[in-house]
Amino acid sequence: MNSRLLPLLATLVIFLAAYAVCYAQYPAMLSTRVIGNLLTDNAFLGIVAVGMTFVIISGGIDLSVGSVIAFSGVFIAVMLRDTGLHPLAVFAALLVLTTLFGAAMGGVIHYLEMPPFIVTLAGMFLARGMAYVLSIDSVPITHEFYEVLQRSYWLMPGKGRLTLIGGMMLVVFLAGIMLAHRTRFGTNVYAVGGGVQTARLMGVPVGRTTVGIYALSGFLAGLAGIVFSIYTSAGYSLATVGVELDAIAAVVIGGTLLTGGSGFVAGTLIGVLIMGLIQTYIIFDGTLSSWWTKILIGMLLFAFIVLQKGLVWTSGKRRAAGG
């Protein structure tokens, strides 16, 4: 068995085990309603986490995604309110904007040789500031097309709903997996993450790849913003604060190394589902005060990371002993 798959399998095992524990305590958690909810509620996080996976595999980081989601929501809401454009046209304009924004950050990172942490931090401030400038108040979206989007779902047995945005998240993950493992761009991303100097010597177009990675992250952040606006049918400039940290946590739980060069997009999906599972469990329990909720989320995050490291370490040892 490929040893690179170890972190991914470890995460999968932990997820299934955790779900089993939750099911034992709250049988209702295995209903299709809850499963459908898991996909819908975390759709925007999942989409943005795919972009974050690519960025982290390349050895970088993107702190701007939460603010770009908020900006996207406000942009869509304000455009729909003030112009007569159809939502699809607004979506297209938005995606072009966020992709260019990401590409600009990637350009600054590569051509000016500045650390991604700081460049994307400045990007985060810029995007959030632009969202404030567009609209301080929360702006509702009332276009009929949105109602069509919100009412599209597939009714699963057991009254659960696989909504459009939940399905979109799954599609984005599939596309991400294809992109990472079946295209040259994906290979270049892994190469850059493994070592920039080595990649350059091998002939990988580092500059183009870097710009492409952050452009992809910007594109997916815009897409996540569209999904979030469908989820909340509003644009709010104070929304999604700190989502970038949730995305990073999901990517790390999914087995991707922050140093870059290794990781799987599929692992991120499981990471997102694990975080959704933690929240669902806490709500089902219903007795945790605000502060105990924070402490428990922190502790569970810790437990998952340690478990995953432990599983990888012990199977590594067993392999070394057996080989």
């Binding site: 940290l245 790390v252 909720t293 924070k294 995050l301």
Partner: peptide
């Protein structure tokens, strides 16, 4: 554990402890 993740844990849980 990577520093950004390790300190993220205390960032989340720590405020809960303070509260």
């Amino acid at each position: 554990i990577q520093p950004i993740v390790a300190t993220l844990i205390l960032m989340v849980a720590g405020r809960g402890i303070a509260q």
